[in-house]
Design a protein around this nucleic acid. Sequence first.
DNA 1: AGGAAACACGAGCAATCACTCGTATTTTAA
DNA 2: TTAAAATACGAGTGATTGCTCGTGTTTCCT
Lengths: 223, 223
Amino acid sequence: MTDDTPKSGRRRQARGEQRIAQLLDAAAEVFAEQGFKGASTNAIAARAGASPGTLYQFFKNKEALAEALMARYVERLREAHGEAFDLRVARLPLDELLDRVVDPLIAFDRAHPGFAVLLADPHLSPELAAAKRPAQQAMFERLDAIFAARAPRLPEAERRRTAEVAVHLFRGLLPLIMAAEEGDELAAVTAEAKRAIGAYLGPVIGTGPSEGTQAGGDRPASA
Amino acid sequence: MTDDTPKSGRRRQARGEQRIAQLLDAAAEVFAEQGFKGASTNAIAARAGASPGTLYQFFKNKEALAEALMARYVERLREAHGEAFDLRVARLPLDELLDRVVDPLIAFDRAHPGFAVLLADPHLSPELAAAKRPAQQAMFERLDAIFAARAPRLPEAERRRTAEVAVHLFRGLLPLIMAAEEGDELAAVTAEAKRAIGAYLGPVIGTGPSEGTQAGGDRPASA
DNA sequence: AGGAAACACGAGCAATCACTCGTATTTTAA
DNA sequence: TTAAAATACGAGTGATTGCTCGTGTTTCCT
């Protein structure tokens, strides 16, 4: 990220690392407020307390800045998931599984408002879209792994489709989640999100502590 | 729309109406491809086969253009809904109700790709955001009316919340729906959307032909 | 027929944008 | 101590944007 191939020359100074962090923080804020296109690099530099020239010393262009920000998000996302997402949750009752998966995700998204904005923007360049992929994969793959552990007899195609749909269901509720104010409103929206996702997942991966696979009761054969 | 207060002076010519339609068509395309911010008015005019000056004869600025486009979408949405959304569907089994509601919505969104783009953009000016509201209300209110007819004993607050969540669940799946290619893939995604929304709605408004209200079996009390 | 208004054009204006560059300061390594 | 590298600045550049305006053409009404 920021700048590869430092093949020769001296090392980056601590000052530089701080500036990069400041610039990424500022970029996160401005992207969250204005979107990628609407954010000006001069505004980002100003909010970071730096000049445009300084910004371009660390990032070769606006896109590279967004890519570096995405990379930092992915890093933090992995940290946040690491604990909450290990495969033992697969054996929990569905309610608890959802608590363990949804709560940290909501906390992360609310703590990093620029993340959802960048993720949701469908008009990014191919390079930036590629930078988004690890973030989506991070969520999708872990969900998929949980499903695989919980319902090993579920066909892979169906399992993958289910994981993808579940991710999109959550993303659909994100605007509601982001807009809710901390407290009762957020709790209500969170509960509703879990209810919606749980209702969708239940017939496929089971509601109880993982019974492996069970042939769901009233689940229609897929068309 | 376009220009109010034509208090005096002569009437709009047929040529003008055609130009407006061309400009709105072009705007829909360019907004869908580039987003609102990314679309340039010169590009829209060019795609409509007109000059910038002509565009600004009918729309006082870029925002008014988008507002007029939104207004046209709302108009068409009401037409598309009118038949499919009347309250008799409330008495159908949930599966059929979903068919009647979801299928036309998917058809509309796929036929008007600019619509979803404008609706989903969270970085629009207050005026444009206000222009979006009728579209969201159109969907929300009719859903709410259906729920009210189907489950009259459901508390209003819960009913409204359910309608809103249902709309967001659908919107979350929209990217999948828009990206699917006509045929098997679209059919599969459509079925999955109905399954997800139906699973969420079933415990609240009942799966059978409306029994009024029924106390759902395993619905947990909201936290 | 003829005048007025609607329609049309497109060069160009002012503002903004992403980005550069010449220069000055701070840090590092010898 | 000192030279090179890293960091920092910010006015400026070229491109693009939303939009205007002078001018010409088409349509309508009488």
